[in-house]
Design a protein around this nucleic acid. Structure first.
Lengths: 347, 347
DNA sequence: TCTGGCACTCTATTGGTGTGAGTGCTAAAA
DNA sequence: TTTTAGCACTCACACCAATAGAGTGCCAGA
């Protein structure tokens, strides 16, 4: 279906109006608010065309038109004006600069989610990089009591994780320190899995001549790997869940509850982010283009953030399908870039 | 005002009925559900007395009676049957046993809040002990990059905290290890503040003969102390916020939102818990007996948990004023005891 | 002191009606 | 051929009145 320029403009006007007021928009209000130089009847005809094209729909016979998901998609894909992007860019970056400059990358992500939700008034989500895939800057073992130690891993990007596990054999703190020193001096910048593999290769080369320290270090690394892989299901920071109370779209308590519950469970959201973490730049998922979003009648604007060339995670905004894409998209975009930059600085 | 036995029983019946149905209770339904051997008219008279005594109130002329806060208070204080306590005890302890036996005390508290909210269907809150007041089992410094280190403190109770801070002078990881060793070997079991004071005394005694290591250790401890004191505003785990959607009491979206927002901010709740953390055993705060609760029309059942003789924090349940105290009180009680026991085991 | 009965009050529900916003269609105008 | 004006029609919603129902308060009698 091809739309002529005027139809596009009218579709855009309808989407904008609906984004703003959350009310079905009638032919009359279009002629009043926007000057297309035509009367309501003409608008009605065009609306009718747009409806048969699948861009608009009708709640009931005598209500105004409402954009369908296809309508939103069309709006986002083709009607989006580059100028809006640029107009907002400077302001947003300014606000993002105010993110506390911390050494703690986890805190940075948490602040980011708060910033995103405050600026958009929607719900923000930020996924935390998986430690099991991260390159390690530092690893440390602490003996808590007999047969029980804690490992602290700091990734290159500045994320920290503590893990507890039991050992068959008790190891003194002194030995643990030696092992940490050994690992840190030789293997920084690799993933835990990489460390394990490299150690294994080295040990095999030296056959049974490898020294005691190395063997213990290997065992510990193996355990830490295992622990990380079994428990590292991915973390998620969310913020601004309360905002959904302010949205007329979610006046239905059941929908609100469902969404809150789903986000609380986190798993579905993490999968959602993981799935689309691969592609570059901002992505927009509208309603039923994704199972999760469709079930809750909302959309997701998401972008990946990275450190150097490595994609670390994704951050984005979940809002109603009729959310203000022209604001949210550039905001998510610049926030992701800002986070990437800040993570770069923490090195 | 003195109530005779029958009045008490009827008051109790009204509170129970209202707890169960969240509906004003009429004289008729009392005679139907409970056998007091009297007619509705008699009940009405007694209700009238209870109302003038301030235990009941009237939404409007022809509605049933609703307990006032004074009514709840009376119910909780005097009508509570010890048998209910014991009856539930075994079941609850059983469920609490299933809390994952982890080495990580933080995880334990998080699991606890989930357990509490799952069992009660209200919102659960658990405060985390302040690291600045805790006795330290282990302290560790990690150099992240020039002039920037991270300290990891593990408390005796098993809580872990990471803090980042900048140093004027760069210190190598090797020196940091020595300092950690030094601190751990001499000062475990004291609070950070205690360590600092003791070191200072020792340094003064030895005057300017104290060695280099000790001086650096002292500086680091001072910094860590400072960092902990400025950022250690208290942590809070909450769970089950979504449950408030199921409560008819909070059908008003505004009230829900207010409560959620307040709990999200955490500060007010932490203050609330801190305030009453001193007293032993379960405490019940009903509605406007406390500012925070009154504003949101809810009550708090709370108990402290400890490790040995030291009170570490508090845990409890926030629910509507008409919550089922006979279930919640023993649950909170036994959960607190269970948590205390588990923390004891982690040593 | 308790009870039955009766009048009274107030809420919630139901059904009917009018209004307004909006569409769809058709015929006339441009 | 495109646009417009007009008109009939639909539907949601607010408003109103009537009614049912639950509950109280009070009084007279057991």
């Amino acid at each position: 279906m091809q739309l002529d320029e005027r139809s596009k403009q009218i579709l855009k006007a309808i989407v904008l109006s609906y984004i703003k007021n959350a009310q079905p928009v009638g032919s009359r209000s279009i002629t009043e608010r926007y000057d297309f130089g035509v009367g309501p009847a003409t608008i009605r005809n065009i609306m009718s065309d747009l409806e048969s094209g699948g861009f608009l729909s009708h709640p009931h016979t005598s209500a105004g038109r409402v954009p369908t998901e296809k309508g939103y998609r069309f709006y986002v894909d083709t009607l989006f004006e580059e100028e809006t992007f640029l107009k907002n860019q400077s302001r947003i970056t300014l606000e993002a600069e105010q993110l506390v400059q911390r050494e703690d990358a986890g805190q940075l992500l948490q602040d980011t989610s708060k910033l995103l939700s405050d600026l958009t008034h929607y719900m923000a989500i930020v996924s935390v990089p998986k430690m099991s895939e991260a390159r390690i800057r530092h690893i440390e073992f602490v003996r808590l009591r007999a047969n029980c130690i804690m490992t602290i891993t700091v990734s290159e990007a500045g994320f920290v994780q503590n893990k507890f596990f039991d050992l068959e054999k008790d190891i003194s703190q002194r030995s643990l320190n030696h092992i940490s020193d050994y690992l840190n001096s030789l293997y920084t910048g690799m993933t835990l899995d990489g460390i394990r593999k490299k150690m294994k290769r080295q040990m095999e080369k030296m056959e049974d001549l490898y020294d005691h320290l190395e063997s213990e270090a290997f065992e510990l690394t193996k355990q830490a790997m295992h622990e990380l892989h079994t428990t590292d299901t991915g973390e998620l920071y969310t913020d601004g869940a309360v905002h959904i109370f302010d949205l007329p779209d979610f006046s239905d308590v059941k929908v609100m509850k469902g969404l809150l519950k789903a986000v609380k469970e986190k798993k579905a959201v993490i999968e959602l982010l993981d799935k689309y973490i691969g592609s570059d730049g901002v992505q927009v998922f509208i309603g039923s283009e994704n199972r999760f979003l469709g079930n809750h009648g909302c959309s997701l604007v998401v972008s990946q953030y990275k450190r150097g060339d490595r994609v670390l995670g994704a951050l984005g905004v979940i809002g109603p399908t009729r959310m203000d894409y022209s604001k949210v998209i550039p905001l998510v975009d610049s926030t992701a870039k800002q986070v990437s930059r800040l993570l770069e600085d923490l090195s």
